[in-house]
Write a protein that binds this DNA or RNA. Structure first.
Lengths: 347, 347
DNA sequence: CCAGCCGCTGTTAGCGCTAACACTACGTCG
DNA sequence: CGACGTAGTGTTAGCGCTAACAGCGGCTGG
């Protein structure tokens, strides 16, 4: 039975009080050596059933809780992973974080996070350093940014690191959704509707995902010998999508637009609506991410779904392999899925 | 200069190798006692400038990094906070998490997270337990769920805990945005447009924020002696908002709707559009949260903004006070702000 | 001129835990 | 029947660090 404290009582944190019980305390109560208690607690050696019972009773009675610091000190293993996350509420990174945390927890690992405002060399380095001070056993860098590759190059090699969505130049294993192929699918879907070309609202130039999606779009057009219109660049935000939309409104032959993410696609839709351009009647629009809102945009948005839970799981798996000393491949891709909705629907 | 490892080299994690340098190693190189090194590293005692230089040089050369486990073991302080987060990509919880992490990092604390799938008594208890094993000094529970209050009651009282958006019944300090007042503002804004009443699409019954928003809406109507329509209940998702919209479409006298969050408002807008109901011409709609997308909905959505960064900062401040042994008040509110956009615009 | 103090450094004793080995009592097998 | 494993337990020695105190000079003040 845990002691239930009212707020008033809880304030006594400053008083030292009787410190947390240790192995020795349990041992004393159970009439065994501290080592036997350790064996019971960790199931790390043979203990007679009745002895185990006595020990367990004492553990329970005293509310014994193993001291992680002491254990870490002697074993050199903390049971904690670090995640360097982007300080961002973007759907993707947040979902990836949860995917990783999930997989880690299932495997008995704790997760420490450290967010960075802008993924530059120093900030990622600082974040890694700060996590190392927390004695993490491995680090995941959620780093969809081009500078992240360089930053990762500066990370000490004596701790396992894997990156999510990082650059191919990074000296660590990288896992990501196949952005290139997702963009290719979206573009081909739009072309299959009979358009001569597809316009593109790209993400920030220094984001790798933005680059990959742009490349997927561009090369699909090139492969077919189609004209490649100038990209309009946004910053992922709906506002920038809206502005891109205003830019596109005047273009001749505007029939199909592929937006590098759903939020910008939303801005596009808004700009088109204001300009009296109807989607899908006048223009077809596709996005990327499949945020939960996308199915309820006006009109519902055709987009490319990324399975972030799977990404998280694979990422953790990779890190686990690395921590075990395995040599994993450099690059791992999770397939993307095209979700067709009304925004590219029949006219 | 950190050693830069190529992937191939990095795989040698399994090899024990030369272990991390310790105070003693630095001391040896600098020709002083380990204690002097400790003093230099922690700035915890007088050291002659030239001695400090020698020590610092050795620290740098060896790449010495203090061992947190050892320090924690002896000081009893880990410098880490725990956050129990909802495994959710909802804009609010994710933003709150980042707000807390930010404030904590600025104050030199690390953050460990543990997510729970459903905030029930056991899962929150498990999460707290799992964080305690990571030796956190204090815990924040992001718990917008009614069961969270009961769960918090079962949390041991020997560690400081504060809750974000938790129930008033919780035996710990709670901080949250003033949901009630936000809902009141939105409702009064709609009424000020000349409507006889306002319909409400509520969030899940077992979410406290949903309850508070509903109460704010209901009591505003009652205070004015207006008819209180039956609430339509959703689950925060755009889909449920869409379904609520289909239910509402047939209602007579439907002129104004207050949705408990922006995602459901999006679903509403979609359902109304499909039914040929124009917003704002035929019906006024307001939401709650001010997600980044809200300004680009079709039409842009009037909504209630929550300052999650401020919530995070205040939450951390509270926890810090509690850790210092202070007795903080039971309930802290952050004001909500009404953002008026076209969805409640002039006809 | 010496008591007293302060600046600087070192020594010692753990923090709570696990690894490694030692020991006992019992089989079991050659 | 003795060598040898094996189950069950205890003893010892750290892991790397900080707290506490113990020096040892030099300076100040009476």
């Amino acid at each position: 039975m845990v002691d239930r404290a009212k707020p008033g009582e809880q304030a006594r944190t400053s008083a030292p009080g009787p410190r947390q019980p240790s192995l020795a305390d349990v041992a004393g109560m159970a009439g065994v050596s501290h080592m036997t208690v350790s064996r019971v607690v960790n199931e790390s050696g043979p203990v007679r059933p009745e002895t185990r019972e006595r020990v367990l009773a004492a553990v329970h009675k005293l509310g014994y809780r193993p001291n992680t610091a002491a254990r870490t000190l002697v074993t050199g293993r903390s049971g904690t992973l670090g995640v360097v996350a982007l300080e961002s509420n973007l759907y993707g990174p947040a979902s990836t974080l949860y995917g990783i945390e999930n997989a880690a927890r299932e495997a008995g690992y704790g997760v420490a996070i450290c967010s960075v405002t802008r993924p530059g060399r120093t900030s990622i380095g600082d974040a890694v350093e700060s996590l190392r001070r927390q004695a993490v056993e491995g680090i995941v860098v959620i780093a969809p940014h081009v500078t992240a590759g360089r930053a990762l190059a500066a990370v000490p090699g004596d701790i396992p690191v894997v990156a999510v969505g990082g650059g191919e130049s990074a000296p660590v294993p990288v896992i990501s959704v196949d952005q290139y192929d997702g963009a290719r699918r979206a573009t081909e879907h739009l072309l299959a509707l009979g358009h001569r070309t597809v316009w593109h609202v790209a993400g920030p130039e220094d984001w790798l995902e933005a680059r990959d999606r742009e490349r997927g779009w561009r090369e699909t057009l090139e492969r077919r010998g189609l004209r490649v219109p100038a990209v309009v660049r946004g910053d992922w935000s709906p506002r920038s999508g809206y502005e891109a939309g205003r830019t596109l409104v005047g273009k001749r032959g505007l029939k199909a637009v592929f937006s590098a993410n759903d939020q910008m696609a939303l801005g596009l839709l808004r700009a088109f609506t204001e300009a009296g351009i109807r989607v899908p009647e006048d223009v077809h629009v596709a996005g990327f991410d499949d945020v939960p809102e996308a199915a309820y945009f006006n009109p519902p948005l055709t987009t490319v779904r990324q399975d972030f839970i799977e990404v998280g799981r694979k990422t953790f798996g990779l890190l686990e392999d690395r921590m075990a000393g395995g040599d994993v491949g450099a690059r791992h891709l999770v397939p993307a899925e095209l979700i067709v909705r009304e925004s590219t629907g029949p006219r």
